[in-house]
Nucleic acid binder design. Structure first.
Lengths: 217, 217
DNA sequence: ATCTGTTTCGAACATCTGTTCTAATAACTC
DNA sequence: GAGTTATTAGAACAGATGTTCGAAACAGAT
C-alpha cells in the first residue's frame, strides 16, 4: 500500500474537489484532465484508477460524473494510516420527498393533487418503505400514545391493519389517527386519551399505518 | 402561464429530488423518464423544458446531469384561499448531518469523537438552527410530554434554558431529558410522568434545549 | 547506454446523454 | 362529432463521457 501521494495525484484530488465545489457536480474525466494539465483523457483515467485503487475515491462504472471523493482528513504526512479510518458511520441513506396532505377531499383519491399541501424530504430509514404520505395531527385524542396536536405523522398506505396498530383512517371525509382494533366482528378505532370515546370503524376507510412521528418544538 | 403543477410535473420534480438524494448526483433525462414511467427520453425532456420555463429548475445545456432544482417560494399567482398557513410549496430546505450521541463519557467534551455514535441527515427546518445533536431517549420519564422510550430527540446546544423548556442535561455523567424549571434559587429538572420524582438540577450540566422529536414505529 | 517500471499521449471504440424531428396518442374545447 | 392543444413515443442524430489499447516519453537504477 502506497502511503504518500505524488504531486500529480494530489493535484487531481484537489481538482476534483474544486471542480465539484465550483459547479456543484463531480467533474468528468476530461474536465479533470484539463484542470491538471493532462492532454489525454486516458491519462486522467489512469490517475483516477490509481487513486481509486488506493481508496481515495470511488467511481461508478460507465456512469457520467460518477466520481466521489472518499472521506479523508488530508493527513498528508505523519501516520501511515490514511483513508480507512471509517470508525463512524454516516447515515446517508435514501431520501425521498413525501407529500403532506392537507384537507381531505371526498371522493378524491388519497394522493390526488387536490389533497397535497406540501412536500417534505426525509430519510427513508425514518419513515420506512412503501407508499408513504404525511399528515398533520389535530387534536389530543392520541396523547397517551405520545402523539400530540401538531405532530406530523408518516403513514404507509394500506387498506387494513393489525390489531393495536396506530392507523390513519378516513371517517366522514376527515382524517383521524387512532388505534386499530377488530373485535366481535366489528372494527374499532380507539383513542389513546380517556377523554375520548372509541369510534365504530366498520365504515371507515383505513388510509394506512402510522410509521413515524415528527415534532418540532 | 400555468401556476399549478400537474401530477406529472410534480412527479418529475419529486423524482429529481429523490434520484439526486439517492445517488448524490442529479439524474439524467433517461433516469427521470424511467422513474416517472415515461417511455421516451423526449417525453422527459419535454417535461423538463416545461418546468424550466416555469422556473422550477435549471438545466445547463448539453452537459450531462446538468439539472438543478430551484429554490421556489414562487407560489406564483396567489388568490387561492390558503388558510393562514404556507401554501403549496416543496420543502427543499437545507439538509445537514447531525451527530447521534451514544454513551456520554465523563470529562469529554460533548461532541468529542468518542461520544459520537452515528450521523443522521435531516432537514434543518425540522430540527432548527444552531448547534444541534441527536440523542436517543431512554426511559419513560417524559411520557406525558409525548416523548417515549426509544425516541430520537434533537438538542440545540445551550448552557441554560427558559422555564418549562424541555432540555437534555447531564446528571452524574448520564444524559437525561426533563423539563427545566428555576424556582426558589434552585434549578429543577422535572419529569413528565407522575411515577418519577423531580431532580435537583443545581449541579447538572444543561446540554441544550430539545427542538424536535422523531419516532419510528 | 540499457533496462525497467511508471506515466503520458493519441486514437479508436462503446455507451451515455442531450437534442431534434415527426407521428401517434390523449385531453380539451367548441 | 370535429378541431385544437398538450403530451407521449419512437427514431435518428450529435456531442459528451468512460474504456481500452498500443506506442511513446520519462525517470531512476544497473
Amino acid at each position: 500500500m502506497d502511503e504518500k501521494l505524488t504531486v500529480r495525484q494530489q493535484a487531481v484530488l484537489d481538482a476534483i474537489r474544486e471542480l465539484r465545489a465550483a459547479k456543484d457536480l463531480p467533474p468528468t474525466l476530461r474536465e479533470i484532465a484539463e484542470a491538471v494539465g493532462l492532454k489525454s483523457v486516458a491519462s486522467a483515467k489512469y490517475q483516477i484508477d490509481q487513486l481509486k485503487a488506493m481508496g481515495y475515491l470511488e467511481q461508478r462504472d460507465n456512469i457520467s460524473r460518477g466520481i466521489s471523493l472518499n472521506a479523508q482528513g488530508s493527513s498528508a504526512t505523519a501516520d501511515s494510516e490514511a483513508p480507512a479510518t471509517s470508525s463512524n458511520n454516516v447515515v446517508a441513506g435514501n431520501f425521498k420527498s413525501y407529500p403532506l396532505l392537507g384537507k381531505i377531499a371526498a371522493g378524491v383519491p388519497l394522493l390526488a393533487q387536490e389533497n397535497i399541501d406540501d412536500h417534505i424530504t426525509l430519510p427513508e430509514s425514518l419513515v420506512g418503505k412503501g407508499d408513504i404520505f404525511l399528515l398533520k395531527v389535530k387534536g389530543e385524542s392520541m396523547i397517551d400514545a405520545a402523539i400530540m396536536d401538531g405532530d406530523i405523522i408518516a403513514v404507509r398506505q394500506q387498506a387494513t391493519a393489525d390489531n393495536n396498530d396506530i392507523v390513519a383512517a378516513l371517517v366522514d371525509d376527515s382524517a383521524t389517527v387512532k388505534v386499530f382494533k377488530q373485535a366481535d366482528g366489528h372494527t374499532w378505532l380507539l383513542p389513546r386519551n380517556s377523554a375520548f370515546e372509541p369510534i365504530l370503524g366498520d365504515y371507515a376507510q383505513i388510509m394506512g399505518k402510522v410509521t413515524a412521528v415528527l415534532r418540532s418544538i
